[in-house]
Simulated scan of single mutants.
Amino acid sequence: MAKIYHHERRLERDLQHLKQRKVLYRLLSTVGLCVTILIVWQYQLLVLILVAVAIVGLYLISQCSLSKQLGKVTAGLAGEDKALEVLRNLPATYSIFPDIQIVVDGRTSQLDTIVVGPTGIFVVEVKNHAGVITGHTNEQQLLQIKHDGYKKTIYNPVKQVATHTYRLHRYLYQHGVDFWIQGTVYFANGAAKVDVANHSSTPIFSVNENGSKRLLYYIEERQSRTLAKSEQRTVEKLIKHIVKKQASN
């Protein structure tokens, strides 16, 4: 099995912060409402009644907003976990680095997963969207149609991973390493149907279309570009440096 370099991921931190905020808002709203009710009980002031109503309203709005954010973060984490479960089935000669943030030339990229092995370097962009995903890879946006008929646009993950691979290449190049990096997209949600016309060199895999096995096969069998063991160690060392820097921030 492949080696996964676990560390606290950004989404895990975001999830913890959102949970803390939700509890804090609940506490502050409860205290504020109790104090206001006590004062209203004593003085029967209309303005304080309005204040109490406002507190309740703000509390409900904040909780609704936080619940939506929690849902998105939780879904994102679930997608990354599904992808890791698939990628860990690569041979022991591969190393997997989840959730890597790279800052190059003053610009930041958040890479879902980097895979380094004898067949090269891969960046896997993971999506956990449900419903039907349609469009063309040469467009900026794809269309997501959920099962209830709700439609929304999402940023094209092929263009997203292209930016990530470029920045990772720039980072490695600035440290004396110049290797090809292959971007891929993996839709991890079993409730998704991907119908995207792919006119790019970036493959798209969907768990619903035997994508897990196809992704592993693509990584293991890509022999057009290979890394020697020494080259692989050099790349892994540079990425580990990023992980260490992330942990200290």
Rank of each mutant, 00 (worst) to 15 (best):
V207W: 03
T226M: 13
R26N: 12
Y25L: 12
V53I: 15
T234A: 14
I100E: 05
W41K: 06
R233A: 14
D14P: 00
V194H: 00
I61Y: 15
A78V: 03
E12H: 07
H6V: 07
L70V: 04
V103H: 12
A228Q: 10
S95Q: 12
K152R: 12
L15D: 07
V158L: 02
H7N: 03
I239E: 02
H199I: 07
E209T: 09
A2T: 04
H169F: 13
E231W: 01
F122S: 07
Y173H: 14
K82E: 13
V115L: 08
Q20N: 08
K237G: 01
K72A: 14
V103N: 13
D112L: 11
S65L: 15
N198F: 05
Y150N: 06
L215P: 00
L87F: 05
S224Y: 10
R9Y: 05
G120N: 09
P118S: 06
E8Q: 14
P157L: 06
L18D: 01
N198E: 02
A75H: 04
F205I: 01
R214E: 12
R26I: 05
Q160Y: 02
A83L: 09
L90T: 04
D178A: 15
L33V: 11
H136I: 08
S200P: 04
K152V: 03
V161A: 06
V158T: 05
H199W: 05
L58R: 07
V126M: 07
L58H: 04
A92K: 13
A162Y: 12
I204T: 09
N89A: 10
V47E: 11
N89G: 02
K193N: 12
W180I: 07
T30H: 08
S248D: 05
Y59D: 13
V56R: 07
W41C: 09
S200D: 06
Q223K: 15
L58D: 07
K244N: 14
A162W: 03
R222A: 10
N138C: 02
P203H: 03
S200V: 06
K229F: 10
Q69S: 15
D148S: 04
V56F: 15
I39T: 11
F97V: 05
H7C: 03
A191M: 11
L216G: 09
Y25K: 02
E139L: 13
N210P: 00
I154Q: 02
H6I: 09
C34D: 04
H199K: 10
L143W: 00
V177P: 00
T119P: 01
L172M: 04
R167M: 11
A197Q: 08
D14S: 11
N249A: 14
I133E: 01
L84A: 04
S200M: 04
T153P: 01
L15I: 03
Y59S: 12
L46M: 11
F122H: 04
V51M: 09
L15F: 13
Q42D: 14
G183R: 03
K237R: 14
G79Y: 08
G106A: 10
Y59Q: 11
H7W: 05
T93I: 09
K213I: 02
D99R: 06
W41P: 00
L38Y: 13
G76Y: 08
L33S: 14
H6D: 11
G135V: 06
G176D: 02
L66V: 12
V31T: 12
Q160A: 05
A247G: 03
N89D: 14
A188H: 05
Y94I: 10
Y150E: 09
A192C: 13
G117D: 09
Y171K: 00
E220F: 00
R214I: 00
D112V: 10
T202P: 01
V126K: 03
Y173F: 13
R21Q: 14
